[in-house]
C-alpha cells in the first residue's frame, strides 16, 4: 500500500522538477530573445507556455488523485497540498516569461544597451531563485528555501536601480517613452517572478512546519 503511495510521491517530485526546468528555460529564452532581438525565439517562448499549463494541470490532477485515493495525513498531506499551491506560482512564472517574450517582439530595445546587461544580471539571479525554490521543495531543503527568500532583496535592489536608470533615460530624452515603458515592464515582470519564487519557498516552509507566512494554517 505504502509502496504505491511512495511511487506516486516520487512521480510528483519528478514532474515538479520537469516543470521547474521548463519555466527556467522560458525565462532564459525570453531574456535571450530580448537581447538578441530574436523574434522567433520569443514566439517559441509564448507558444511553449501552453505546455507549462498542461504540466500544471497534470500535477494538479496527480495531487487531487492522491488526496482522493490515499487520503494523505501528516507530512504526506502537507506535501501534496504544498505542491498543489506551488504549481500555481510556477505557472504564473511561465506567464510572466511569456509576457517578457511578447514585449521583446514589439519593443526595439537597441537604445538600451547598458540597461540590457543589467537586465541580464537580474534575470540570472531570478532564474537561480526559481531553480533553488523548486529544488528546496523536492529535496525538502529549508536552508536553501530561506536563502532563496533572502535573495529576493537583491532582486528588489536591482529592480530599483534599473528603474532609476530608466527614469534617468526619460529625463535625458535618451529613449522614447514606448521603449522606456517596455523596459520597465520587463524588469517588473522579472521582479514578480522572484516574488513567485519566494512564494514557492514559503510553501516549502509550510511543508516542513504547517506554517505559511508565520501563521499555522494546519
Amino acid at each position: 500500500m505504502r509502496n504505491s503511495f511512495d511511487h506516486k510521491l516520487i512521480q510528483l517530485n519528478n514532474d515538479l522538477i520537469r516543470m521547474g526546468g521548463m519555466i527556467e528555460e522560458a525565462i532564459a529564452s525570453a531574456i535571450t530573445a530580448l537581447r538578441e532581438n530574436d523574434a522567433e525565439l520569443a514566439r517559441k517562448v509564448v507558444k511553449n507556455d501552453r505546455f507549462v499549463d498542461d504540466e500544471e494541470k497534470n500535477i494538479e490532477s496527480q495531487c487531487l488523485s492522491i488526496i482522493l485515493r490515499e487520503q494523505p495525513v501528516a507530512r504526506d498531506l502537507r506535501k501534496v497540498s504544498a505542491a498543489l499551491k506551488m504549481v500555481t506560482d510556477m505557472e504564473r512564472i511561465a506567464d510572466n516569461a511569456a509576457d517578457i517574450a511578447e514585449i521583446s517582439i514589439i519593443a526595439d530595445v537597441s537604445a538600451l544597451m547598458h540597461i540590457l546587461n543589467e537586465i541580464k544580471t537580474m534575470s540570472e539571479k531570478v532564474i537561480t531563485m526559481v531553480s533553488h525554490a523548486v529544488d528546496s521543495f523536492v529535496n525538502t531543503d529549508m536552508q536553501l528555501a530561506n536563502d532563496t527568500i533572502k535573495a529576493d532583496d537583491e532582486v528588489d535592489e536591482l529592480f530599483i536601480s534599473i528603474r532609476n536608470k530608466i527614469v534617468q533615460l526619460i529625463k535625458d530624452e535618451a529613449c522614447s517613452g514606448d521603449v522606456a515603458v517596455d523596459a520597465l515592464m520587463i524588469v517588473k515582470y522579472l521582479e514578480r517572478i522572484a516574488d513567485h519564487a519566494v512564494n514557492i519557498c514559503e510553501w516549502v516552509e509550510f511543508f516542513e512546519t504547517g506554517e505559511y507566512k508565520n501563521t499555522q494554517i494546519i
Partner: peptide, 20 residues
C-alpha cells in the same frame, strides 16, 4: 485531532498514521 493528523510531533505517530 487536526494537529495529530496534520503535524504529529512524534516520529512513531507519523509512521503509524502514514502507513509507514
Amino acid at each position: 485531532t487536526e494537529e495529530l493528523f496534520s503535524r504529529p510531533q512524534d516520529k512513531r505517530t507519523e509512521d503509524y498514521i502514514t502507513g509507514r
